[in-house]
Amino acid sequence: MSAAIYAARKKLSVEIIADKFGGQTSLQPEVHNYPGFLDKDGLVLMQNMRSQVKNFGIDIKEVGQGIKSISSRQENGKEIFILEDKNGDTYEGKSVIVASGKKPKKLGIPGEEEFYNKGVTYCATCDAPLFGEKTVAVVGGGNSGLDSAMQLTKYAKKVYVLVRSDIAKGDQITQDKLKEIEVVEFIMNAEVQEIKGEKFVNKMIYKDKASGEEKELDVEGVFVNVGMIPNSDFLKGFCELNQWGEVVINPKTNATSHVGVFAAGDVTDILEKQTVIAAGEGAKAALQCYKWLASN
């Protein structure tokens, strides 16, 4: 969004191609650390950005399934980039700024795909209210897992939090709060093996890593919070990615290894993944992109 705003201010012709508008920030019920933004609701922040972008006359193409591939062709000695979305539609440009963010990582276990939206979900903000008076499990002891558990305590009658190791990585303050809530039960050293059910989830199997024993939990909901992976599949072989699939950028210029392609925000190898940082990175990328276009 910020890249588009900066690029539009430089009178570049811009189009935003997105899977869906909003991104991770729009799913945050409380944003307390975006300077100048007092509203707190992440969706409002993103809607404000969208209005700002629209005021510059920039079109946001929401293509649903995201970008499938990137390629290029030569025209008058210059490289023209071609993006193809998963519907087969193509978009061309003289430069590309990749700001595709991250998406929730999957567990990769049997039953996960089959029961997606049938008890398995990756978004407590979206789905927690559907689990009123039900027993649920949160997989993951990082901050997002703990946040999910916290949201679920408002609705569910029982919330198990399964953590892979013997300590949860999330903030101690949240852990302490959760431990005081009666419906919450932490299960440590738990490796989730399978999600089972009929029409909907009714069971989860996990291995107790301490004893090696396989155990069952009767749950109707499984909230998966085991980290995020960058939306960078389409760039494989086109730009350098690091071992986690993040786009490697020059931190000063946001240039990727492919000349003419820039990247910004959570999809890149910058160390801190924060809305305000991503916004700043987008602005940086757009200004560098403008300079590069002007000199080429």
């Binding site: 508008f21 909003g22 969706l43 903000t125 979206c126 927690a128």
Partner: peptide, 10 residues
Amino acid sequence: TTPTCVYCQM
């Protein structure tokens, strides 16, 4: 809908 669902609001 649910009150917290972003796509519901959209």
